[in-house]
Computed example of a mutant assay.
Amino acid sequence: MVLQTMFRYRVYNVLEGTDEGGMIGEVLNVFIIALIVANVTAVVLATDASLYQAYQSLFDWFEVVSVAIFTVEYALRLWTAPCNPRFAGPGGRVRFATSPLALIDLVAIMPFYLPMVLPLDLRILRMLRLVRIFRLFKLYRYSEALRMLERVIKAEKEALVVVGFVLLVLLILTSTVMYFVEHTAQPEAFSSIPMAMWWAVATLTTVGYGDVYPVTPLGKLLGGFIAILGIGMFALPAGILASAFGDEIRGRHEKKRICPHCGRCIDDPPAGDEVLTGSAEEGTAVPGAADTSH
């Protein structure tokens, strides 16, 4: 029983890529990341009918091997879930199975097994093949950059919600104004406020597809003003995220410079009493200190 528990903890550390997992954990993480990227590439390339027909057997075998590896990974993570303090105790594996990351792992392999259990038509099978693109989200477990993005969004969620609300209000106002200005001149393009929202979105985001545009003098004047306003408004969330990313990066650098044992900054010079104590314990003289033994 003890050996089984120790082996389970060993497997857990390897899967999580912790320091206890050693080189095996690092190699496994790199392999899984490469396999995820290769799977997403295969899903994208398989949508080309001529390419898929030419290499169908290769695509199919790669899918079988990938699903087998992902299935083993999911089973091992489910088996080692109690090693994580979050999922320790009764019902720990159930809590793990319903966690977001575990659900992503499950969605990554379900499209392969569902046709074996349920009779599905070709349209649903095509949709299930495209669902495999969600394997891309498995990278979150291995990517520090994605975890940093999550922390940044959580830290600035209030500001982002406020900016999003302001942008929504601006979208409704501009659509309403442009509907009343352009409806008479272009009853088909600006037939309603929801239809005018397409123009407002394209203008506020400065995309400007050109399929719908104002033709009246007042509409052109308002359109130019709204386009300029959109540049400034959509720069707000970008500035908020950039500032939050800067704070996160600085926080990581500062955290790295803190000694995990004493909690002091590594760059700080040692205090005088610590130097004397350390020197006395080692039996060495303190540089620059006067010899008072005579």
Rank of each mutant, 00 (worst) to 15 (best):
D267C: 02
V14R: 03
E248Q: 15
E16S: 12
R252I: 00
R264N: 11
I124C: 08
L160P: 03
A102F: 07
V2S: 04
R264G: 09
F225I: 15
E156Q: 04
A271N: 13
G230V: 01
F165K: 06
N29W: 10
G232D: 00
S66H: 11
L76R: 05
L236R: 10
A280H: 10
V161W: 00
L229S: 04
V37D: 07
P115S: 11
A238Y: 11
V152F: 08
T5R: 05
Q4H: 01
S279V: 04
G272M: 14
W198R: 03
F59E: 03
W79A: 09
M233P: 07
V177P: 01
A46T: 11
L139P: 02
A200T: 03
A159Y: 06
A202Q: 06
V169A: 14
V169G: 11
A189Q: 07
V177W: 08
Q4T: 06
G232S: 08
I228E: 03
D273P: 10
K154R: 14
S243I: 09
F134R: 04
S57P: 00
V11R: 06
F70D: 03
L114I: 15
R93F: 05
M148R: 09
R250V: 13
L168R: 00
Y9D: 10
I24K: 11
S99Y: 07
V11Q: 06
K255F: 11
F165V: 15
R132E: 12
A75C: 13
T71K: 02
A227F: 07
E156P: 00
M148G: 07
E274S: 12
L171W: 06
M110N: 07
V207S: 10
V72Q: 02
Y179V: 05
L78E: 09
P111Y: 00
G91E: 07
A202Y: 02
R86K: 13
P111T: 06
N29L: 11
F59G: 06
L218I: 14
G232A: 08
K256R: 13
L139V: 06
V207W: 10
Y179A: 02
H253I: 09
D273S: 15
V117E: 12
E282T: 11
A280I: 12
G272A: 14
G164Y: 02
A42Q: 10
I24V: 15
N84E: 05
R86F: 09
F7D: 01
A238S: 12
A145L: 08
P194Y: 01
T184Q: 10
M148W: 08
Y142K: 03
G224E: 07
G22N: 10
E16P: 00
S293E: 10
V37K: 11
R77S: 11
C83M: 12
D121M: 09
